[in-house]
Simulated assay, not measured.
Amino acid sequence: MTARDVAENPKNLRLVEVAAAQLPRSLDDISLPVINGNHALETGLVPARDALGLERAEGNPYANVLVITQALSRDGRILRLADLLTSAEVARFIRDRYRGSVIPVRTT
Protein backbone atom coordinates (compact mmCIF):
# COMPACT_ATOMS: atom_id res chain seq x y z
CA MET A 1 0.00 0.00 0.00
CA THR A 2 1.21 3.50 -0.77
CA ALA A 3 -0.09 6.98 -0.11
CA ARG A 4 -1.72 6.82 -3.55
CA ASP A 5 -4.01 4.06 -2.26
CA VAL A 6 -5.63 6.36 0.32
CA ALA A 7 -9.09 7.23 -1.01
CA GLU A 8 -9.88 9.96 1.53
CA ASN A 9 -7.92 12.01 4.03
CA PRO A 10 -10.52 14.15 5.84
CA LYS A 11 -8.03 15.12 8.59
CA ASN A 12 -5.49 16.26 5.97
CA LEU A 13 -2.80 14.09 7.55
CA ARG A 14 0.60 14.26 5.93
CA LEU A 15 1.40 10.74 4.77
CA VAL A 16 5.06 9.82 4.58
CA GLU A 17 6.20 6.59 2.99
CA VAL A 18 9.06 4.92 4.84
CA ALA A 19 10.57 1.50 4.19
CA ALA A 20 8.95 -0.98 6.59
CA ALA A 21 12.24 -2.00 8.18
CA GLN A 22 13.04 1.66 8.95
CA LEU A 23 9.78 2.45 10.76
CA PRO A 24 10.82 1.28 14.26
CA ARG A 25 13.94 3.42 13.98
CA SER A 26 11.84 6.42 12.92
CA LEU A 27 9.56 6.56 15.96
CA ASP A 28 10.93 9.93 17.09
CA ASP A 29 10.19 11.43 13.67
CA ILE A 30 6.77 9.95 12.88
CA SER A 31 3.55 10.61 14.81
CA LEU A 32 1.66 7.44 13.95
CA PRO A 33 3.62 4.67 12.21
CA VAL A 34 2.10 1.35 11.20
CA ILE A 35 4.84 -1.19 11.87
CA ASN A 36 4.92 -4.84 10.81
CA GLY A 37 5.24 -7.12 13.83
CA ASN A 38 8.45 -8.74 12.66
CA HIS A 39 10.17 -5.36 12.30
CA ALA A 40 8.90 -4.25 15.70
CA LEU A 41 10.18 -7.42 17.35
CA GLU A 42 13.59 -7.14 15.66
CA THR A 43 14.13 -3.74 17.24
CA GLY A 44 13.02 -4.65 20.75
CA LEU A 45 9.46 -3.36 20.60
CA VAL A 46 6.77 -5.62 22.06
CA PRO A 47 3.67 -5.19 19.91
CA ALA A 48 1.36 -6.70 22.55
CA ARG A 49 2.56 -4.02 24.99
CA ASP A 50 3.71 -1.08 22.84
CA ALA A 51 1.09 -0.91 20.10
CA LEU A 52 -1.90 1.42 20.20
CA GLY A 53 -3.78 -1.14 18.09
CA LEU A 54 -3.23 -4.62 16.75
CA GLU A 55 -4.71 -6.66 13.91
CA ARG A 56 -7.08 -9.39 14.96
CA ALA A 57 -5.71 -12.92 14.81
CA GLU A 58 -9.09 -14.40 13.89
CA GLY A 59 -9.55 -14.43 10.12
CA ASN A 60 -6.32 -12.54 9.50
CA PRO A 61 -5.26 -13.08 5.89
CA TYR A 62 -1.60 -12.57 6.80
CA ALA A 63 -1.10 -15.70 8.87
CA ASN A 64 2.03 -17.69 8.07
CA VAL A 65 1.25 -20.99 6.39
CA LEU A 66 3.28 -24.00 5.32
CA VAL A 67 3.07 -24.37 1.54
CA ILE A 68 4.50 -27.34 -0.34
CA THR A 69 4.42 -28.80 -3.82
CA GLN A 70 2.19 -31.75 -4.64
CA ALA A 71 5.34 -33.87 -5.04
CA LEU A 72 6.20 -33.31 -1.35
CA SER A 73 2.71 -33.80 0.02
CA ARG A 74 3.51 -37.30 1.33
CA ASP A 75 7.12 -36.68 2.30
CA GLY A 76 7.55 -37.81 5.90
CA ARG A 77 9.80 -34.87 6.73
CA ILE A 78 7.15 -32.39 5.58
CA LEU A 79 4.39 -34.24 7.44
CA ARG A 80 6.53 -34.18 10.59
CA LEU A 81 7.21 -30.46 10.16
CA ALA A 82 3.48 -29.78 9.78
CA ASP A 83 2.78 -31.76 12.95
CA LEU A 84 5.46 -29.88 14.86
CA LEU A 85 4.32 -26.44 13.67
CA THR A 86 0.81 -27.11 14.94
CA SER A 87 1.83 -28.90 18.14
CA ALA A 88 0.97 -27.82 21.66
CA GLU A 89 4.71 -27.59 22.39
CA VAL A 90 5.32 -25.05 19.62
CA ALA A 91 2.18 -23.11 20.61
CA ARG A 92 3.49 -22.94 24.18
CA PHE A 93 6.92 -21.77 22.93
CA ILE A 94 5.31 -19.01 20.83
CA ARG A 95 3.13 -17.84 23.73
CA ASP A 96 6.07 -17.88 26.18
CA ARG A 97 8.57 -16.26 23.80
CA TYR A 98 6.38 -13.60 22.17
CA ARG A 99 3.90 -12.82 24.99
CA GLY A 100 0.94 -12.05 22.71
CA SER A 101 2.93 -10.35 19.94
CA VAL A 102 2.78 -13.53 17.82
CA ILE A 103 -0.27 -15.77 17.97
CA PRO A 104 0.15 -19.53 17.48
CA VAL A 105 -2.16 -21.45 15.16
CA ARG A 106 -2.95 -23.89 17.92
CA THR A 107 -4.45 -22.31 21.02
CA THR A 108 -4.31 -25.27 23.43
Rank of each mutant, 00 (worst) to 15 (best):
A88F: 01
L72M: 15
I103F: 00
V102Q: 05
P104R: 03
N12M: 02
V18D: 03
Q22G: 00
S101A: 08
D50T: 07
E89F: 05
R80I: 00
L13P: 00
D29M: 06
E55R: 03
R14M: 05
P47D: 05
H39V: 09
A71T: 15
A3G: 14
A71W: 10
H39M: 11
L81Y: 01
R4N: 14
S26K: 11
A21K: 13
T108F: 01
A88W: 00
N36S: 00
V16R: 08
N60T: 02
V65T: 12
V6D: 13
R77H: 08
A20I: 01
A51P: 07
A48Y: 05
E8M: 07
R49C: 00
A88K: 08
V102H: 04
Q70F: 11
H39E: 14
A7Y: 13
L23W: 02
I35D: 02
S26T: 04
V18K: 12
L13D: 02
G76N: 07
E8F: 11
A51V: 10
R77C: 01
L13G: 00
D28T: 14
G53Q: 09
L45Q: 13
N12T: 02
D83W: 02
R77T: 09
V65C: 05
R4C: 06
T108A: 08
Y62V: 01
T43H: 06
G59K: 08
Y62K: 04
I68A: 14
Y98C: 02
S31Y: 11
S73Y: 01
Y62I: 02
S31D: 14
R25L: 10
V65Y: 13
E55P: 14
M1H: 07
T86S: 07
D5E: 15
N12A: 12
I78G: 03
L45M: 14
S73A: 14
V6W: 15
S87N: 05
G59T: 10
D50Q: 01
A21R: 11
N64T: 15
R25Q: 12
R4T: 15
L45P: 12
V16F: 02
L52G: 14
T86Q: 06
A48N: 07
V102R: 09
Q70A: 15
P24W: 03
A82V: 03
Q70N: 11
I35E: 02
L66H: 09
L27P: 07
P10A: 03
R56K: 14
D96F: 00
S87P: 02
E55M: 11
E58C: 01
I94R: 02
I35S: 04
D83A: 09
A3H: 11
S73V: 06
I68Y: 11
A51G: 06
D28K: 15
R4K: 15
V6E: 13
S73I: 08
A57V: 05
A40H: 04
V6N: 12
L79C: 00
S87M: 01
P33R: 09
A40D: 08
L27N: 05
A48R: 06
V16L: 09
A20L: 03
P10T: 01
I30K: 06
L32H: 11
N36C: 00
A48L: 06
T69G: 15
E17N: 10
V105P: 01
V16Y: 04
D5M: 12
T2Y: 13
G53S: 15
D50V: 04
E58K: 08
L27C: 08
N64C: 12
I94Q: 00
L52F: 13
A7Q: 15
R4G: 11
